[in-house]
């Protein structure tokens, strides 16, 4: 396997009038082709910022991000992103939301609808093609957002806590569906979450980040066959290991926030 994405010495500082905040401090890692890689870390550790830099929505203060060896400049269709917030266009139907990426690429209507219907089927929303986002539940909206990103056929899918706003049950269902799609489509996925359980359940490797400023604390390969059994000894072992490493970081974040009050 070879790296599709390389993050080299990336630093991100946010400079406001009052102060300078170091959000991401010298981060290095790579993502392999067809890999499912997760990043976990306490809230505010800069993991979303990191993902936004890879998407091209933020620029690193220093360091470089290489996509297939080329430095990225701004957002692009080959790096599709699924956000935690609902981002469907409320004036478009499910079908037209899923088709928008293809529409931008200039693919004719008939063809883009054909492709989009295939993905709507894949995300289990057949029959909802003509529904509007406000007629769908939060979980269904996130499925559409995932379908929209996949229909656009990106080389890597960036996911920023896509299931963060959903209830536990919907979350589990969508995790399984995501794995199914990933397996079938052989996509590369970079997944940000604060749920250790979710990261172990989904990923080939899990990157653990420190409290702010975000650095990489450890990278844990998850050597378990899929589908993974959450109650298995091995799964629980992994969970314990990662939670232990995270605990200090969460405490640090907690203290940091307390002192700042």
């Amino acid at each position: 396997m070879s790296a599709i994405l390389e993050i080299k010495n990336v630093v991100k500082k946010f400079i406001s009038e009052k102060k300078e905040v170091l959000a991401v401090d010298n981060v290095n890692f790579y993502v392999e082709h067809n890999e499912f890689l997760s990043i976990v870390g306490p809230s505010g550790c800069g993991k979303s910022t990191l993902l936004r830099m890879i998407a091209g929505l933020e620029t690193p203060t220093s360091g470089e991000i290489l996509m297939e060896g080329k430095e990225i400049k701004g957002p692009g269709a080959e790096r599709g992103m699924v956000f935690q917030q609902y981002t469907l266009l409320p004036w478009r139907t499910v079908l037209d939301n899923v088709a928008i990426g293809l529409e931008i690429k200039g693919i004719p209507k008939k063809e883009r609808y054909e492709i989009s219907r295939k993905f709507i089927k894949m995300i289990g929303l057949e029959g909802f093609e003509d529904s509007y986002p406000y007629e769908l539940s939060g979980g269904m909206q996130q499925r559409v957002a995932i379908g929209r990103t996949l229909a656009n056929d990106p080389k890597i899918v960036l996911m920023d806590e896509p299931f963060g706003a959903l209830d536990a049950q919907t979350r589990t269902i969508l995790q399984n569906e995501l794995l199914k799609i990933w397996n079938k489509d052989k996509k590369t996925v970079l997944f940000v979450t604060h749920s250790v359980d979710e990261a172990i359940y989904l990923s080939d490797r899990v990157i653990i980040m420190t409290a702010r400023p975000g650095r990489i604390k450890d990278v844990i390969p998850i050597d378990l066959d899929r589908p993974r059994e959450r109650n298995s000894m091995e799964f629980i072992e992994y969970k314990k290991k990662i939670v232990d490493k995270l605990k200090d970081e969460v405490l640090k974040t907690y203290n940091m926030n307390n002192y700042s009050i």
Binding site: A55, G74, G80, F83, Q85, T87, L89, G101, N152, L158
Partner: peptide
């Protein structure tokens, strides 16, 4: 802003 960002990652100019 998030609507704009989300379609930028779909290749929108």
């Amino acid at each position: 802003k998030i609507l704009i960002e989300s379609i930028e990652t779909l290749g929108a100019k």
